[in-house]
Simulated scan of single mutants.
Amino acid sequence: MTHNSMNRLSHHSFQEKLISTDPSVSWRSLEELRILVVDDNADDRELLALMIEQEGGEVVLAASANEALDCCQKLSIDALVSDICMPGEDGYTLIKKIRALSLPSQSQIPAIALSSSLSNNYREQALAAGFQKYLLKPVDLDELVTAITELVN
């Protein structure tokens, strides 16, 4: 599997994107939600964190599947947003391990898979492994917020 990072957004264009968010979705809020973001690419992690924090969410960052699993076992997590293609253990392995945890508060975390692949195979594998949603990179802010709020409500 190859890893393609999100399209690089300049700080200026990212701010424009946040400012121009569709007002019809302003009712959706990530306030009081702790969201675990997992991606081996630091730029992608930071961009996702900015997007989630802009909507009021608290973000926990993990650079690997092992870090993410540790977070799931130690912290109360409301939703997981994870890249699929990571070195070592990938997102598929991560979600299978999370779904195998003994506590329902850990094993039933709502989960969104991220990938830059348009392949239906990636989407089908992600959903079969235990993710509830599959989003393409680069992630649209409105689409991400909608997906998270749908899963946690």
Results as ranks from 00 to 15, higher is better:
1 M>R: 06
2 T>V: 08
3 H>W: 06
3 H>L: 05
3 H>F: 06
4 N>Q: 02
4 N>S: 09
4 N>T: 09
5 S>L: 10
8 R>N: 06
9 L>Q: 05
10 S>F: 06
11 H>K: 10
13 S>F: 12
13 S>C: 12
15 Q>A: 11
16 E>Y: 05
17 K>R: 13
17 K>P: 03
18 L>D: 08
19 I>T: 15
20 S>T: 14
20 S>W: 04
20 S>D: 13
21 T>I: 14
21 T>S: 15
21 T>A: 09
24 S>I: 07
24 S>C: 11
24 S>E: 14
25 V>M: 13
25 V>I: 15
26 S>K: 14
28 R>F: 14
28 R>D: 12
30 L>F: 10
32 E>F: 06
32 E>V: 02
32 E>T: 01
32 E>L: 06
34 R>T: 12
35 I>F: 13
36 L>S: 10
36 L>E: 01
38 V>C: 00
39 D>Y: 01
39 D>V: 03
41 N>P: 04
43 D>C: 07
45 R>K: 08
45 R>V: 07
45 R>C: 13
46 E>C: 04
47 L>S: 07
48 L>F: 04
48 L>Y: 03
49 A>Y: 03
56 G>C: 07
56 G>K: 06
58 E>W: 02
58 E>F: 02
60 V>R: 05
60 V>H: 00
60 V>Y: 04
65 A>R: 02
65 A>T: 01
67 E>S: 03
67 E>F: 04
68 A>C: 11
68 A>E: 03
72 C>P: 00
72 C>V: 08
73 Q>I: 14
75 L>Y: 07
75 L>M: 11
79 A>R: 08
79 A>D: 12
80 L>T: 02
81 V>W: 00
82 S>G: 00
85 C>G: 14
85 C>T: 09
85 C>F: 12
86 M>F: 03
94 L>T: 02
94 L>H: 11
94 L>F: 12
94 L>C: 07
99 R>S: 01
107 S>F: 03
108 Q>G: 09
109 I>G: 01
110 P>M: 09
110 P>H: 11
111 A>T: 07
111 A>I: 08
118 L>T: 04
118 L>F: 02
120 N>R: 09
120 N>D: 05
123 R>S: 10
124 E>G: 04
126 A>E: 01
126 A>P: 00
126 A>D: 05
128 A>K: 13
129 A>G: 07
129 A>P: 04
131 F>G: 12
132 Q>W: 08
133 K>C: 09
133 K>R: 14
133 K>G: 04
134 Y>V: 05
135 L>T: 00
135 L>H: 06
136 L>M: 01
137 K>N: 00
137 K>A: 00
138 P>K: 12
139 V>R: 11
139 V>C: 03
140 D>F: 07
142 D>C: 14
142 D>A: 15
143 E>K: 14
143 E>V: 11
143 E>D: 14
144 L>E: 01
145 V>D: 01
147 A>D: 09
147 A>P: 07
148 I>G: 03
149 T>A: 06
150 E>I: 11
151 L>N: 09
153 N>L: 12
153 N>I: 08
153 N>M: 12
